[in-house]
Design a protein around this nucleic acid. Structure first.
Lengths: 147, 147
DNA sequence: GCCCCTTTTTAGACAGAGCTAAATATTTAT
DNA sequence: ATAAATATTTAGCTCTGTCTAAAAAGGGGC
């Protein structure tokens, strides 16, 4: 049957996410933007684009702008979503600093599955809508609940 | 200077962890045990051992048992620790089922840094020593606090 | 002591993802 | 309009980490 859609690698997810974000920020995306953002060589982008085009997640003619397909945009949004939920959880619930939170989210976004993501979202919500007091991180004490 | 200790890869961390656990369980570890546990070919283990020996994390003479160096044991314990904390957090705090928790922990253990790990530990402790009531996951409702 | 079975290692291939250098397009500025 | 600057692609290399097949080592039973 060969409908075997190989699972998207962490690397390709990163490229896809970058393309999505660059388009969101600048209206269009070229190779160089992606290379700069990811800190890789331009040729690595060309290379990754081949993989993404092959999987029908990206549309791209040589030397032209980079565009996402419907499916590509869907997947990209999903990665971004995972990234945001994780960052949020780390900063809001665990009181971790932005930089550390983002760094970890960047790697975890390729790993975390639906079930855990759902629970993290629920936990953030629970934490936010604290009708039962607030839990905060206190240096030297750990997490503390204030009524 | 070349004292450049390259960061241990996720893959090598997995091998190291397996060696540690097999030794803990059976008293000794051979190639085959590791291959079976990780579900890889025997030759992949031989290969990985080269990397671990080179980094002085493992002692190994051809055809002989596999042993950890002091440093190797330290690193292995650290990986196992991260694994356990993560699994714990997922099952205890997020009420995720064992299998899903373990699967995610297996990947995250190679990623999560000290700061976040510390916070997770604190959160587990906070959750456990609930002198302020208990927070539990309720299907269809999310997390709920019981006084 | 020797044969057979299992384990381990070697050898060689391959895929993924990165790099540099060189070739080729495109864009911009004079 | 063309030369210079910039961007993109190609070609070829490297490193990990995996695999399979074949060779070599070890261990037991008899």
């Amino acid at each position: 049957m060969e409908t075997m859609t190989t699972e998207l690698s962490a690397s390709l997810e990163d490229y896809l996410e970058s393309i999505f974000l660059v388009i969101a920020e600048r209206g269009e995306a070229r190779s160089k933007d992606i290379a700069d953002r990811l800190g890789v060589a331009a040729s690595s982008v060309t290379n990754a684009l081949r993989g993404l085009v092959k999987r029908d997640l990206v549309r791209h003619e040589p030397y032209d702008l980079i565009a996402l397909t419907e499916e590509g945009e869907r997947v990209a949004r999903d990665v971004v979503h995972r990234h945001e939920v994780l960052t949020h959880f780390f900063t809001e619930v665990l009181s971790v600093d932005e930089k550390t939170a983002t760094a970890c989210a960047c790697k975890m976004e390729h790993i975390v599955g639906d079930v855990i993501l759902e629970r993290l979202i629920a936990y953030i919500e629970y934490d936010r809508s604290s009708g039962n007091g607030k839990t905060t991180w206190v240096e030297g004490k750990g997490f503390v609940h204030h009524a």
